[in-house]
Amino acid sequence: MKKSLSPCGQFKFGEKDYWKCVMMKYTATPFHLVGTCKLGPKSDPQAVVNEKLKVYRVDHLRVVDSSIMPKIIKGNTNAPTIMIAEKTGDMFKKEWLSGVI
């Protein structure tokens, strides 16, 4: 006999109500989502941030994470996300030292 997933234990395993419950309770994804704040030129209607990661039409806001990647990469997003953060840190230092921020 198969065991049910605990939050859906009130339903018989395998029946329609059981799977409806599973779909409602277990909605996490194993994927590394990217692209929700696409980096791109101002002429791109889907772009949210510019090359300095500044959000278009919002002053004093930057996005510094994997959401700026226009397309998902084939591997894990951890290393590119660290690279984005490191590059942004370098930009901040350069701007701070030049008196821009």
Rank of each mutant, 00 (worst) to 15 (best):
M1C: 07
K2L: 14
K2Q: 15
S4K: 04
S4G: 14
S4C: 03
S4E: 06
L5V: 09
L5P: 00
S6L: 12
G9M: 10
G9H: 09
G9T: 09
Q10S: 09
F11K: 01
F11T: 04
K12P: 12
K12A: 14
F13S: 12
G14K: 11
D17H: 09
D17L: 08
Y18M: 04
W19Q: 03
K20G: 07
K20E: 15
K20R: 13
K20D: 14
C21H: 07
V22C: 08
M23C: 06
M23Y: 06
M23F: 11
M24P: 01
Y26V: 10
T27I: 08
A28K: 12
T29L: 11
T29C: 14
T29W: 04
T29K: 09
T29G: 13
P30Y: 02
P30N: 14
P30F: 14
F31S: 13
H32L: 11
L33T: 15
L33S: 13
L33A: 14
L33C: 13
V34F: 04
G35K: 02
G35C: 03
T36P: 09
T36G: 03
C37D: 03
L39R: 03
L39P: 01
G40K: 13
G40Y: 06
P41V: 13
P41D: 05
K42I: 14
K42E: 12
S43T: 08
D44K: 12
D44L: 04
D44A: 08
P45N: 11
P45G: 11
Q46D: 12
Q46T: 14
Q46S: 15
A47W: 04
V48E: 06
V48H: 06
V49A: 01
N50G: 08
N50H: 02
N50C: 06
N50I: 12
E51A: 13
E51M: 13
K52C: 05
L53M: 07
L53Q: 05
L53D: 02
K54S: 10
V55C: 01
V55M: 01
Y56M: 03
R57M: 09
V58G: 01
H60P: 01
L61Q: 12
L61T: 07
R62Q: 01
R62P: 01
V63W: 00
V64S: 06
D65H: 00
S66F: 04
S66H: 00
M69E: 00
P70F: 02
K71Q: 07
K71S: 09
I73N: 05
I73H: 08
I73C: 05
K74P: 03
G75D: 00
G75P: 00
T77I: 10
N78T: 15
A79Y: 07
M83T: 09
M83L: 05
K87T: 10
T88K: 00
T88A: 14
G89L: 00
D90R: 05
D90E: 12
D90G: 03
M91Y: 06
K93D: 06
K93C: 06
K94C: 07
K94I: 04
K94V: 06
K94E: 15
W96H: 10
W96C: 08
W96D: 02
L97E: 15
L97P: 08
L97N: 12
S98W: 10
G99C: 07
V100F: 13
V100C: 15
I101Q: 08
I101N: 15
